[in-house]
Design a protein around this nucleic acid. Structure first.
Lengths: 214, 214
DNA sequence: TTGTGTGAATCCCTTCACAGCG
DNA sequence: CGCTGTGAAGGGATTCACACAA
């Protein structure tokens, strides 16, 4: 149970969970690994292996009970409790994230918004008042923030990271396009749109070359 | 040269490129794999291996010429030509992406914006006029779109994908949180924020458990 | 001496194949 | 039978270690 689980396994579990929730809504009681594979774009063996890392959830000859498995996955992924999220940066990306409907529905509650633009500070977004960057640490402590979403311009990001880490945050979702340094006990996930696009252009170029060659 | 190159290698090249561009701006002429590793959070062996898949770029005992290597990476990644991008969905995520400064600087030009909201159609964003979804195919053809960025709500995404693929698009960056089906010749990259957050919560939960156990 | 380029070794992840349970 | 759970096999990717070039 406390062996090494890979990041890709976890991301697949997250996909399975969404799939199961769809099945639940559709009233399906039971599903096989084969059916899940067909719908989620992996293989049946992969799904069974992934799940087996955490226990035995299925019945042989029957498949998996949809609602139960969904519940187990939520527990495994840490979704059986709400998470308090602070958004740093109230610009375009920040406001898009704030309104993103899938966050709240998964138990990610944005309880604080911080920005350094005096024009934005004091404005209300829903029930949250935008606070100045000078109160970053205080905000994190007062609001018991678990996770910080970094949607600030590239310069000075490392400084913000250092401050939120010192304030006790252990999870960071980073939209700034640069490698950040954090202590080992802090988890950080990077979302880098340019890298995605460049992986895309590489694939496109490559294919064109192959077509021209072949 | 035309062997199988993994996606993770390509993403690392993209990171190296940004790093090299920073060094270039700082006026550094030469850099070793060790120094690049230190700055980008990988290992020197990894960097040398990645680069060796595409050729010999360094000088033994010296390191790599910054400007030259950057140029080579741009060529490898397909960045030595501009790319014409269409944005589907002029909502919050769409407008954030439209204003994202790092796209244009890397040669990704948003040449069209499409939305199905009559209130938005006809509005101008910079030099681009928002067009209705009914003109999706025509827009893609007229503007010679290479890449489509999908920033539309979850329902009906698959339908939009089918239409842009039929119109000749071969690269898609998808922000909708669902697995999409595309023909094999089309490349698709998914950006799924909820999956990233859930990978984060898993890591946080796991660490807490370990601490409580140990 | 320094630091690249690269076979070899290692590690990790995915796929296979089947025993075993319902 | 049908489908899960899992050891074993296979395939990739990362790391090691060193020959070699500047």
């Amino acid at each position: 149970m406390s062996q090494k689980i890979s990041d890709s396994t976890i991301r697949r579990l997250s996909v399975y969970l969404r799939l199961l929730e769809d099945l639940e809504k559709a009233g399906t009681a039971t599903v096989s690994s084969g059916e899940m594979a067909r719908r989620s774009g992996t293989t049946a063996a992969q799904i069974r292996k992934d799940l087996s890392l955490f226990g035995s959830f299925g019945k042989r000859g029957m498949g998996y009970a949809v609602a139960e498995l969904a519940q187990s996955l939520r527990r495994i992924l840490g979704l059986s409790r709400p998470w308090r999220v602070a958004l740093i940066g109230a610009g375009r990306i920040g406001s898009a994230l704030f309104a993103y409907p899938n966050f709240a529905s998964r138990g990610f509650h944005i309880v604080a918004v911080v920005d350094n633009d005096p024009e934005k500070v004091g404005k209300r977004w829903g029930s949250v008042t935008i606070r100045p960057e000078s109160e970053l640490e205080a905000t994190i402590r007062e609001e018991n923030v678990d996770i910080v979403v970094l949607a600030v311009p590239a310069h000075a990001v490392q400084d913000v990271v250092d401050r939120v880490v010192r304030a006790g945050v252990r999870g960071i979702l980073n939209f700034a396009p640069m490698p950040l340094k954090v202590p080992r006990h802090v988890r950080i996930k990077d979302v880098n749109l340019v890298i995605e696009l460049e992986a895309l252009t590489y694939a496109l170029i490559k294919e064109t070359e192959l077509n021209e060659a072949g």
